[in-house]
Design a protein around this nucleic acid. Structure first.
Lengths: 351, 351
DNA sequence: CTGTTAGCGCATTCAT
DNA sequence: ATGAATGCGCTAACAG
């Protein structure tokens, strides 16, 4: 009997008798109880089909008896596969990101992976620190938001060799894989939509979000092409809240009392604008059109009419996670991929 | 030169020359470049104050040169501390939980921990599976939602010896630590609040959430004590959306056209009810009072008056995470703790 | 302040 | 279908 075995027995004893809970049984403990070798236990747990039913049963019995809980830290170290995927997003309080996190989590869980979550708060330096920390966990894949990263972030991700999905934007030179759409084009489409319906005094309400900024660039560029200047722009601080939408409209009206449309960088802001508009007795969309972004739950059901942008079919998080999983399944056979999800302009004339 | 060293050199060569990215340098690689022993590198990285400045500089230089990224899987295995904390919540799309996740994440990140996220979808069996998987990662702590767990979940958590915080509820026999408040009492306070203001035809709109159910029990019990029966109850399916609130009010009105108050299990539902009420020309709170739960962002700013419950000062997630961190700092000196955050009834007579 | 020794718990070869 | 040997990369404990 080796020293290691002695320790194992000690552990088991303590678990059974002492009042201090102990880390628990190991593969070797289970093996001893089942009367097989550790590797057989490993197989019984990970590839049951390679083990005789009889042996399998004995192992399962031993697992019960010892209260064995797999140690994935050790497993990951030995196999170099962590079954961990990391997601880095700016925030989770924004509904559009919350939905994405749910989608990613569900997809990963179903495939036996776990989610390591990081919040960058829209700050590149935080993302950089996060990526560094995350890589130290040796995740099997990483999903990051957008394509604007610091040089360090980018370099680290590239050198790591870990499959990476950049989500939400299109990228001219992706790190690895990309799932997103062109925010400039969304802005342009929004501009054309409003112009066609006769709106000319268009205001912008936005928070300081790089993707929102791109949409606004597209919007302003397209308006300019038609000889229309933006009536007013109001930037709000993060985090986005309904109240910010209310205040935003007030400030925009102060700047440009004659405005006839407000383009918001998120549905939450749009909803706040809507609320403020109604409380001021403004007719929507008769006197003022309100445009959001995301078409999440509530956007479809706000009580006055609302125009909004809708990102295509499956949740972008599902697509991103699936892309990662495909890569992990297929070894390295699958080449870098860029998926343009496209977008959809939705006009709601009434509830 | 040992075989291991040969391998290390090979790795470095590949990183430099080949087109296939490789996992990267190890402590040993860095040590060799810096001309010190691996353990010195480890110290330089984890306890710089124990290393001579000169040595430290050489190590840092070597880290740069090799592009070394720490391997926390190995570190965790060796030290038995994973720097990982897991949070299990029903959902993340509910604002009240999203805020909690943000709070937990921030608190943990600041302390050098990372978040492993699990979604239970309000299904105990999912929680059970999640807890099993999570324990296999050997987290340094676990935060779970509520106190209603399957026997297996509870036993596993207890046996694991991992610090556990149960958040959102009060528990008579906690697994370890608890941060929450009594949902029954919230319901009772809500009842008294409404009765005092003369409301008598009170309806309930809820989703199938155990905590919401407890609040409703408290509400109904307190109403009954005053000889008042609930006018109508409408249960809605998950997930909670604004639209559900709208539909809910419609269905409640169909059941009890004369209702004068609606108590909702979440702010999101309440907001939907509000929207529907306004679109039907109902005066709030003149004809119908609306009560939510959570007092998140939007609740304070919805345009008609809204009564709501507010959970005490610091975010419950912050408190929960801090409790864990205190325990981790103090070794096992800190005993199990139960924190009753209390709650606060907020009445908004106007925006 | 720095190095040596010895595992942490598991999975990956190969054997049998 | 099962087992033996070996090392994944790191840190704890002790030496010096």
């Amino acid at each position: 009997m080796t020293i290691k075995n002695d320790q194992s027995e000690l552990r088991v004893l303590r678990t059974a008798n002492a009042d201090i809970p102990v880390s628990g049984a190991t593969l070797a403990d289970v093996a001893k109880v089942a009367g097989v070798s550790p590797i057989t236990v490993s197989r019984a747990l990970n590839q049951p089909q390679l083990v005789r039913p009889n042996t399998l049963a004995r192992v399962q019995q031993a697992v019960q008896q010892t209260g064995y809980v797999k140690n994935m830290m050790a497993g990951a170290l030995a196999s170099n596969r962590s079954k961990l995927v990391s997601l880095v997003i700016p925030s989770i309080a924004t509904p559009i990101f919350a939905e994405m996190v749910e989608a990613v989590t569900d997809t990963l869980t179903q495939a036996g992976y776990q989610l390591l979550l990081g919040l960058s708060r829209y700050e590149p330096w935080r993302e950089e620190v996060l990526v560094e920390t995350i890589l130290s966990r040796r995740p099997d894949g990483i999903i990051v938001t957008g394509t604007l990263h610091t040089d360090n972030t980018r370099r680290r991700l590239e050198l790591s060799g870990v499959p990476v999905v950049e989500a939400w934007d299109m990228a001219s030179s992706p790190i690895d894989m990309v799932v997103g759409f062109s925010h400039e084009e969304v802005g342009q489409a929004t501009a054309r939509h409003l112009l066609k319906r006769g709106y000319r005094r268009i205001a912008i309400l936005a928070v300081n979000d790089p993707r929102g900024a791109r949409r606004n660039q597209g919007l302003q560029a397209e308006l300019a092409r038609h000889g229309v200047a933006v009536a007013a722009v109001q930037l709000m601080p993060l985090p986005t809240t309904l109240q910010l939408g209310r205040e935003g409209l007030a400030q925009l009206l102060a700047q440009a009392p004659e405005l006839d449309a407000v383009v918001c960088s998120s549905d939450t802001l749009a909803h706040g604008v809507l609320t403020e508009a109604v409380s001021r007795g403004l007719d929507v969309p008769g006197q003022v059109a309100v445009i959001g972004f995301g078409d999440l739950n509530f956007a479809a059901h706000t009580y006055p009419p609302l125009s909004t942008i809708h990102v295509d079919g499956r949740n972008i998080g599902t697509v991103a996670a699936q892309l990662l999983l495909d890569r992990l399944d297929g070894g390295n056979q699958v080449r870098p991929r860029v998926i343009d999800t496209g977008f959809e302009l939705i006009h709601r004339a009434s509830t």
